[in-house]
Design a binder for these strands. Structure first.
Lengths: 140, 140
DNA sequence: CCGGTGCTTTACGCTTACGTAAACGTAAGG
DNA sequence: CCTTACGTTTACGTAAGCGTAAAGCACCGG
């Protein structure tokens, strides 16, 4: 594995590394997304928690709610369990996959449209210098 | 254009078509994302509004806030304006593009990990029938 | 022993994105 | 004229995701 797979972090370490507040991290613990070790009252984060935090934040960027993120993140370390659970997990995976693929299509579409807007914008800009004809590609 | 570019829709039409509530559509109007024609007090939606609603919902799927969506959607029908505005718009486009590309990377990563989880899951499942060796690819 | 630094908990506050209830207008059909 | 369907406004409610005090423990250096 890594050179220091047994390293540990304070809450401030992680907060700085991932640019979130202490409150945010504690909140994730409150809702059960993180469960750092306790040494006395202090939280001690290990690599596992660090990975989970990264997963949580990525989920957030993708627009998932903390609850959805919980089901996703927990998929990563389910124990084998019985076959019914495994089938359910496979279902969940399929659902998430479809959602993600939809989002990816949304992104591709939006990027293409941004290209169009940008082109139009550059046309308008150059038209301010040496006037020509627009292509009439507004929304209306 | 389309056969009926001058069609109009009631609020219920759009709500059903896009599977949202009337309240949601009215809320989008409240915050200035939609501005349907008024015939008396009743709302009359035209193609422009319909397109905007689709854009709004796509933005939501991508995890943008309504405020962010407003700035994005409004980019689509900005008037040429003066060069300062156009420069600003180009900046905004660049910002959005970077955000979207980050999200796309997030999605790709997540899809890959889903694949891994699924493989592991299928392994576990088949191990329940004819036991073999796992690959030890858990989070911890 | 005293102060500071860094952590902790408890708990109320705030914003976003709507839900939901109350009360009423308007047009069609029996 | 009455009902039914569909629309409207106003306004308070709510869940999620934190922000922000307020107050306290625990250790460290002087």
């Amino acid at each position: 594995m890594d050179q220091a797979d047994d390293r540990s972090w304070t809450i401030t370490d992680l907060a700085e590394e991932y640019a979130v507040t202490l409150r945010t991290i504690r909140h994730y613990e409150d809702v059960g997304l993180l469960s750092p070790e306790r040494r006395g009252t202090a939280r001690v984060f290990h690599n596992r928690d660090r990975v989970r935090l990264a997963l949580i934040l990525r989920g957030k960027r993708l627009g998932f709610s903390l609850e959805e993120i919980a089901t996703i993140v927990n998929m990563y370390d389910e124990q084998p369990g019985e076959s019914g659970q495994l089938e359910y997990l496979l279902d969940q995976i399929a659902v998430r996959r479809r959602e993600l693929e939809q989002r990816r299509r949304d992104i591709e579409d939006t990027l293409r449209e941004l290209d169009a807007v940008e082109r139009r914008c550059r046309d308008d800009l150059s038209a301010l210098v040496g006037p020509a004809a627009g292509d009439g590609s507004r929304l209306r």
